[in-house]
Write a protein that binds this DNA or RNA. Sequence first.
DNA 1: ATCGTACTTGTACATCCGTACAAGAAAAGA
DNA 2: TCTTTTCTTGTACGGATGTACAAGTACGAT
Lengths: 192, 192
Amino acid sequence: MTARRPQRARDPEARRAALASAAMEVIAECGVGRTTHRAVAARAGLPLGATTYYFPTLDDLIAAGLRHALDTMRADMQAWDVRLRAAPDMPEALTTLVQEYLTDRRQVRLEYELFVAAARDTTLRPIAEAWMAGLPAIVEDTYGHEAAHDICALLDGVILQAMVTGSELDAPRLTAALRKLTSSRPFVRGTP
Amino acid sequence: MTARRPQRARDPEARRAALASAAMEVIAECGVGRTTHRAVAARAGLPLGATTYYFPTLDDLIAAGLRHALDTMRADMQAWDVRLRAAPDMPEALTTLVQEYLTDRRQVRLEYELFVAAARDTTLRPIAEAWMAGLPAIVEDTYGHEAAHDICALLDGVILQAMVTGSELDAPRLTAALRKLTSSRPFVRGTP
DNA sequence: ATCGTACTTGTACATCCGTACAAGAAAAGA
DNA sequence: TCTTTTCTTGTACGGATGTACAAGTACGAT
């Protein structure tokens, strides 16, 4: 009576990727802490057993999901690499980058979900560090190593604020702040 | 045979606070998603039923834990309010603030745990927004509303980087970045 | 063709979960 | 004092969870 589903065409590599992708989506929506084998399997449209076959433990599955997120982010970042290098005005280009990035709030949540998870679990740090290193690597060529990290810290903070409040980005203000941060020397308040 | 524990002296208010405090600790260590009634009860040294008596649902318990975290943070912030207003050099004072804040990594994780949770659950946003508004409110008096938010965004980003990598703060760099950000006008690269 | 390996699918199981609730003891009111 | 309310404690229950595993099928090697 209980008809068994006929087996699908086999493609282990695709299945592994589909599970990682599904894991990524579940993490983005439910958070790392509420990600389960069953939710991932359901999202991927695969039986429960598939998850444990490809990823022995839940931690492995979550790590795969986060790694998958890193990979897709890197692809986006490459496009931005081109755009930023061609940009006539870097602060404005970075502002629009942030603006476009904030379009997909789910993605933003996923990023910070990764960061918090990495803070708790050292195993995930390489993934989070690779994520954080993406943008600085591009900005570095224009502003140098140190300034690049400062700039990206500012961007991370601005993105965080927008994520928490759910508000839009104040683009002109960010551009202005970036201009200050990328200026060669600081000014003391009041001196002309 | 199963001896029932004699009832303790009653102090509902203290119990509520103890549960909220325990919830805060569990959230800091396990994350919002892995916080359970049982873990909180065990941490507080109270029976399971106490959690559901004071906080009908798990969401209530978690919200109470986060609110408790906000309250304790506000107390710390008041001390910083005094120190910052008395500080001769604001950028340096803010740098040492960050440095001291990074001393307790558990607290840092808790903060960002709150932010991610608030991004996902709008119910928690008031708590997260109150948290984020704490420092700007102090810095505002010196640098004005807009600059204060930029400064705090930078600090948030720097703290985030330190949290993820587990590394120490590069204090001189942060001070320098703060000086740039608090300068009255931006400089174009190369012009003296 | 057949064989063995690698993969698929469904199910089982012990454990933990959120929440409900019964039984009792303290405090408060009469 | 007795009664009512409020709080304490332990337990119960249906359901979800991580993981193990048996049964079966595709597919490459031979």
